[in-house]
Write a protein that binds this DNA or RNA. Structure first.
Lengths: 235, 235
DNA sequence: AGAGTTTATTAACTTATGTTAATGTCCACA
DNA sequence: TGTGGACATTAACATAAGTTAATAAACTCT
């Protein structure tokens, strides 16, 4: 996509920088606290949110009492509330989240079709479909270790290079083991087992909110991870 | 969505009728034979295909040698080749398929196709995301009987009322048990077991390419199916 | 109509993951 | 500074689904 601009190496990120990078104006910055609901499907106000910083989760409860995580939204991702509403998902902040909010495109009666926003929206929707497609493959056709490793590699790739400390390969991760289980279709107990196995196999460690890749190369091969699906981006 | 027009009761369906219903002109009708590849992700020509009749499958092979079905495309569904390409999927005809082909929207520098096409594209992409979201829930958080029943109810709902014979609740289904397994993340052998169990429980029968609901109400309750996700549509 | 291919069916056996329940750790807040 | 709640960890046990392999049935092509 021609609109892609890597921000992997940015040292800071703000609404102003967002405006500059995206060329979009008119958005309103909003902040949500951890745990806060950003959008629920029974809310009917169409909006477009561009996530500037923090982690959000889009999930839904099933009638059988379980939960499925449809995706984790990271910096640069778009949250289209009409899409979320159609799929009956709920979007919640996992950490402190900042978004830029725009009025929804579909509600514009007369719309500048050549507008940059349209192009961006389509690109973001395609990216989301590609992520969902990979998630389907992950849940449907991989075992527990592969699913879990794949998810954590996906998140690392989408976040871009870490800035935690020099020579550190990993990232701060606000997910609980229950979140991970709901994202890959496994029980919390089994996620715990898999994380222990990975730690003991020297592949990765996830403790106290920090994911560290102990041998990223080996893990990548072991779980068939292809990072070209998930290059970080900002508009 | 305001653009939704039910075609559930249509007795026939043709490219001309498609033009009339959608208000779109300029599309080129194309036909594919069963088994033929409609679009492969290494093909780089951006197009929009609107499926007029027949069944198609969008799937991908994983490095571990398995296959995942991302979705079955039915009458009224859009196939956006840039989306398919980004997710590295392959689209194949399962029966004789007719599509209307349009040049891709994103490649138009200045677009005169009226914003109607744009609106349609966005709506179709949202619908696809909603279907994928449900599929994720299905694979991630339901057992084998629920997954299989859910998929077949989804297909029946999306196809709309049957025209096979009077008082027949079911549909012609060109899927193999392997296709179903690849769509819901189960082995072929287990799909076979589940179909037998459903038949013996008087829920549904799938034999010789015909799905018949023996007790659709009971099945719907048993698998928590909510048909409002999948209302049939044509543009 | 017959041969060959694909698809469906079933049984026997294996295994990955779920469930339950108990204990430990961490963190927020009174 | 302690207490409650959320989260993580582990073991023992239960079970749903995978695998293999053999047979049958259904199509396809000549």
């Amino acid at each position: 996509m021609t609109t892609q601009v890597s921000i992997g190496r940015l040292q800071a990120f703000s609404p102003d920088l967002y405006r500059q990078k995206s060329g979009l104006t008119g958005g309103i910055p909003r902040t949500y606290a951890p745990g806060e609901t950003i959008y629920d499907y029974d809310d009917n106000t169409p909006r477009l949110l561009f996530l500037v910083s923090g982690w959000a989760v889009s999930s839904k409860m099933l009638p059988n009492g379980t939960r499925i995580v449809v995706e984790f939204a990271l910096r640069g991702d778009m949250i289209s509330t009409p899409s979320v509403e159609m799929a009956r998902e709920t979007v919640q902040a996992l950490s402190t989240v900042t978004v830029m909010e725009f009025p929804d495109f579909t509600s514009h009666a007369s719309l500048d079709v050549s507008s940059r926003l349209y192009r961006i929206v389509l690109t973001e929707m395609m990216r989301r479909q590609a992520r969902m497609s990979e998630r389907l493959a992950n849940i449907g056709r991989r075992d527990a270790l592969e699913r879990t490793g794949h998810l954590l590699l996906e998140l690392a790739t989408r976040l871009g290079p870490s800035r935690l400390k020099p020579n550190f390969d990993g990232f701060e991760c606000p997910l609980t083991q229950a979140d991970i289980g709901d994202a890959v279709g496994l029980s919390t107990v089994h996620i715990n087992r898999v994380l222990r196995d990975m730690r003991m196999a020297g592949l990765l460690s996830f403790r106290n909110g920090i994911v560290e890749f102990l041998d990223r190369q080996k893990l990548t091969e072991l779980v068939d991870f292809d990072e070209t699906y998930f290059a970080p981006h900002m508009i």
